[in-house]
């Protein structure tokens, strides 16, 4: 498996750390209810098909990236820097 780091180009999966769905970008505000936090930390859409997830180019440039990917076919459809996706 290879992933397109927006900074380094296509790299082997070994260089990346995986952290789950990009829902992690949408951290609730302080004081949001228990349900909002439960959804943020635990619950997942977990699609069989296109998804967006977070990877860390740990053995590369150190960028966190959001990869658009298909969980059924493993096709990789694109990637952006998490920093940009988060803004």
């Amino acid at each position: 498996m290879r992933l397109p780091c927006p900074i380094c180009g296509e790299r082997d999966r070994r260089e990346f750390y995986y952290a789950g769905h990009a829902v992690a970008l949408e951290r609730p505000q302080e004081g949001a209810g228990a349900e909002a936090w439960d959804y943020y930390v635990h619950n997942r859409d977990n699609p069989c098909g296109e998804t967006r997830d977070l990877w860390f180019h740990e053995s590369g440039c150190g960028a966190w990236i959001v990869v658009t990917r298909d969980t059924a076919s493993h096709a990789v459809l694109g990637a952006v820097l998490a920093e940009e996706a988060a803004r």
Binding site: M1, C48, D53, H74
Partner: peptide, 13 residues
């Protein structure tokens, strides 16, 4: 394999 998947197959790493 450490990535969300429904493919019932993995990769070399």
């Amino acid at each position: 394999d450490m990535y969300a998947s429904y493919a019932a197959r993995g990769n070399l790493p």
